[in-house]
Nucleic acid binder design. Structure first.
Length: 421
DNA sequence: TCTGGGGTCCTAGGACCC
DNA sequence: TCTGGGGTCCTAGGACCC
């Protein structure tokens, strides 16, 4: 039985549900919302999913089906969705002590200290539906990955009525038996293939896989964290409520392909303007500017991916200055004779890697552990004999070995090795 | 004919320094 | 004369998410 639980509140078919608020007649009807330029389907109601309409499917392929089956099709209205999302999140914050907004349509809530998590989840669901008109599903479990699993079942199961609680080993294992590996949060198409080759076909197989270091080796630290989360050990903790974006991107697919450098520069200038405004909004400065443009990869033509990046000596959010640098990068990397279909810019407002220098005294020294606590990502780590060590951290294992003699070590935010104190 | 946009995190490998 | 190897920084790109 787990005590400290996390809830995941996820809006059902969010963009479609937003459209339905203003069109009550579409209740129980198939609805689809399309991407920019009406390119492809990015939201579908259950009725539309039942017709076989896939996520990300190009509209031209399903146009006839939509007409035949009387599917209501909408172009995106992002400002509407953002507005409704803000209201959903505000409501959650009113009732829950700690809320982490994860995306436009989902949020994690901290349920530790809540006596009856299931009734709490149902109450939240009811309030959001009544006050805002958006149906949500709630998954509750000891870790974020398991809360995702619970949420998926809450959406699928009729019996659950939109809320699933996994608070003990038996429920968790049963849920993981029902979860194909590719449906786990963090396992995409590539890793699913690799895992299946190792005989890991369902969530439960990953949880019960005996060889942690093989998981670490093949699927990086993220894979190992995922496995630990399935075991009920929290690795993905709650974030600060308002975290500045580390990267801000603005990109578009062109309606018509672009053949000239001048045309590309004009488009890029617009994207830079947009990104710089976002930078200033969160009071950040650009440290690295990236500019890219690519050919249409769906077409059987000569392909080119143009990418130029520059680290700025004087970080800034000044639009004109950034445009100047973007144009320099285009001059440097642009190749004539290609048909560019998509382009964009990315401004990074943080350095890629942060490093910390820490003086070590003796292994197991509590002062070290306290320093680590204050500076590093930490997780609990399971030893071979099954005992859980209270503290582990990411260490560059080579640096560790060398620096041990000098009683200092260099740690990076990207983990190369787990080391147990 | 027609295939989105905005993010995060991790790793391999080259250049360079001592 | 012998030309090593560890460490750091940065680029580039993969994988994943919604």
């Amino acid at each position: 039985m787990f005590e400290n639980l996390i809830g995941l509140v996820d809006c059902n078919s969010f963009y479609c549900s937003c459209e339905r608020i203003f069109r009550p007649d579409l209740k129980d009807r198939p609805v689809v919302v399309l991407s920019n330029n009406d390119g492809c389907a990015i939201a579908r109601t259950n009725e539309a999913k039942a017709l076989g309409i896939k996520m990300g499917e190009p509209y031209f392929k399903i146009k006839k089906l939509c007409t035949d089956k009387k599917v209501s099709v909408f172009s995106t209205n992002f400002s509407l969705y953002t507005n409704i999302s803000d209201r959903v999140m505000a409501t959650l914050k009113k009732y829950c002590p700690e809320v982490e907004v994860y995306s436009v349509d989902e949020a994690f809530i901290n349920l530790s200290g809540i006596k009856d998590p299931e009734s709490f989840g149902r109450k939240i669901k009811e309030i959001i539906l009544k006050h805002i008109g958006i149906p949500v599903s709630v998954g509750i479990a000891p870790t974020k990955v398991l809360a995702k699993v619970a949420n998926r079942l809450a959406k699928k199961s009729k019996k659950a009525q939109g809320v699933v609680v996994l608070d003990n080993e038996i429920y968790i294992n049963e849920a993981l038996r029902r979860t194909p590996i590719e449906d786990l949060w963090g396992v995409g198409i590539k890793n699913a293939q690799k895992m299946r080759a190792l005989g890991i076909k369902r969530g439960i197989d990953l949880k019960e896989y005996k060889n942690d270091s093989l998981i670490r080796k093949n699927f990086s630290i993220l894979g190992l964290r995922m496995k630990l989360e399935l075991e009920g050990i929290q690795c993905f903790v709650f974030n600060e409520p308002f975290v500045k974006k580390k990267e801000i991107m603005c990109s578009r697919t062109f309606g018509d392909s672009v053949f000239s450098k001048t045309h590309l520069k004009t488009a890029i200038a617009n994207y830079v303007t947009n990104a710089a405004a976002k930078l200033r909004q969160q009071d950040s400065k650009c440290l690295k500017l990236s500019v890219f443009a690519r050919t249409n990869s769906f077409k059987n033509i000569a392909q080119y991916y143009m990418l130029g990046e520059k680290l700025l000596v004087n970080p800034t959010s000044n639009t004109l200055y950034l445009i100047e640098i973007a144009h320099e990068l285009i001059d440097k990397h642009y190749q004539e004779g290609y048909e560019y279909k998509k382009a964009g810019v990315r401004v990074s407002s943080f350095m890629d890697q942060q490093t910390y220098q820490i003086d070590l005294l003796e292994r197991g020294d509590s002062a070290i552990e306290e320093k680590l606590m204050n500076t590093l990502d930490l997780i609990n780590y399971r030893e071979g004999d099954g005992t859980i060590k209270s503290l582990a951290c990411g260490i560059d294992d080579k640096a560790w070995r060398m620096n041990r003699e000098f009683k200092s070590a260099r740690y990076t935010t990207s983990w190369n090795e787990l080391f147990v104190f």
